[in-house]
Design a protein around this nucleic acid. Sequence first.
DNA 1: CTGAAAGCGCTAACAA
DNA 2: TTGTTAGCGCTTTCAG
Lengths: 340, 340
Amino acid sequence: MRKKKINSTTVSINDVARLAGVSITTVSRVINKSPSVKRKNRSRVLDAVKQLKFEPSVLAQRLATGKSNVVALLIPRYEGIFYSFYALELIRGIGTLCEALKLDLLLHLTEVNATLSLQGIGGIVFADIIGNKSQLQEALAKGIPSIVINNRVQDLEVSSISVDNVGGAESAVDYLCSLGHKNIAHITGDLVTQASLQRLEGYKKSLKKNKIELNQEYIVKTDYSRGQARQAAEKLIQMSSPATAVFVASDSMALEVMAVARELGKDIPKDLSIVGFDDNPSGLYGPVALTTVRQPLVRMAQEGVKELNSIMHVDKKAPIKKIVLPTELVIRESCRPLGS
Amino acid sequence: MRKKKINSTTVSINDVARLAGVSITTVSRVINKSPSVKRKNRSRVLDAVKQLKFEPSVLAQRLATGKSNVVALLIPRYEGIFYSFYALELIRGIGTLCEALKLDLLLHLTEVNATLSLQGIGGIVFADIIGNKSQLQEALAKGIPSIVINNRVQDLEVSSISVDNVGGAESAVDYLCSLGHKNIAHITGDLVTQASLQRLEGYKKSLKKNKIELNQEYIVKTDYSRGQARQAAEKLIQMSSPATAVFVASDSMALEVMAVARELGKDIPKDLSIVGFDDNPSGLYGPVALTTVRQPLVRMAQEGVKELNSIMHVDKKAPIKKIVLPTELVIRESCRPLGS
DNA sequence: CTGAAAGCGCTAACAA
DNA sequence: TTGTTAGCGCTTTCAG
């Protein structure tokens, strides 16, 4: 057996109990704010705690209760996520709220097929679901409170918080139509993400609504990178009958398109109207401020954590919610009525 | 007392021991790869482990040993860090390596003065030290393996891995001088960061070396944001005797400067030579590719984790290292000899 | 090479 | 209101 701690560096509940002259149970009760402790004892314990600078061991608490305050954030490591405005906004939103709620934030940049351990994890935030639905199912099966953000999960019993990408895209293209444009192109994001798919859907929906025939050539797929945005822009601008307007799936790509257009001698917005998506502050600073669709990324992230926290700590059986946050078209300078 | 677990959902070392017909001690030995276990017993245990899908509880291990595989990444939450290329690169580098080394990554976006708990944390990566040196000192005092990246810490017994900002800035300005420029401006980053301070230092050093008198008006301070970069650029360009070249503390700001210059009718690089810092891929895509100083951010982050890991798991008493990684001037198209 | 038992720090059921 | 005690799941003496 081990010797009783002699050179104990950490002070434990025992030390507090001894100093306060009560049992460790009482100390535990005080720590956990149980009402059934006499005033006098409580203050004694509190004094001892203060004096010894006692900090209960989260580890031991977890082991004893089986509960944990650790929130894991799972970010699927798909190409390009690390060059995105999106990822940082997400981390910012989640990180600051976790800090405020005193949740420990564990960051996992997961391989899609990786099987993660989930040990000692109290809750999980899935940032999008990209080929890793099995991870989500596993978590759900194990009964770990989970929540999905930036992806509307329809077929699983899990709350999700996403953004109205379809509506956002639709409003962007509607706007372009309202300016008289007929030849409207779309540069997509990485179609492994639901968001990109939905933006494409919104694009098509608007065209249909506005009785504009879909031209497949006007749809160019990318992986969200600036490089591919450049190629897409070049292709679009040099077509025999080029589009007069383009809806781009992200602001950073839209800025790239602007740059390319200018290099090719086009004037924005005279020769080409552009709408982006994100409301990335970078869009404000060019010679022509970018018209874009604002999506509440930080809010989405924070609502997600809030929801997760309440599942974890308040009501494990709270009803599943499928929240879709609205987007907002922000009209600035990068579009103009056709022919004006 | 509690009933012995009946509806046990997790399988424990006891279950394995029972199935294998050995003591839990033996199971523990097998788990920890102790050599002193008979072949036969070992394989029995291994079989049982497989059959039961046993996974040792990290929590219990931590509690019993006092050791932990959790690495905390502390990012000081100063203004603007969340709009930076830098932060994401850091998280990417650290995140992927932690994943590979099977370290749990805890993310803390700390308030400078916050006193964090450090419970159950096996090691800490300090991403820069910005007013939070006391946190570092506390960690060191508690004996928690720590490492600092992106900041050369001179006065504390801690390994640090940083980038040669002085040298990088110097090479940038030297290059500008070599092109014949005399009126060289500098747009700084946020001077709360050591990196920005050092880049400013390198700038001054180069001027001195090249016998160019320092003009305070040519130094404009910012917080790394595009907005402030814009203001700085406007100020610089509209001076009575404007600079012919400018060294900018980050690529994203440099791109903004380019944009402003163009808006004001200046040609890049004919009227103004620009060097950035970072080697942000965005710099490649404009009409004029940005000349810049490449800094190995991901590598720095990964070296940091590697070093920390070895302190944690190999040699706690390894000698302190102060590593400074070299930078590299990447010459592209945004500079031109004066008057050519 | 193996196992019994103490201990890590805490919670919770039970009795007093 | 309080204390006793049996766990939580694992490691680590120590004695075979």
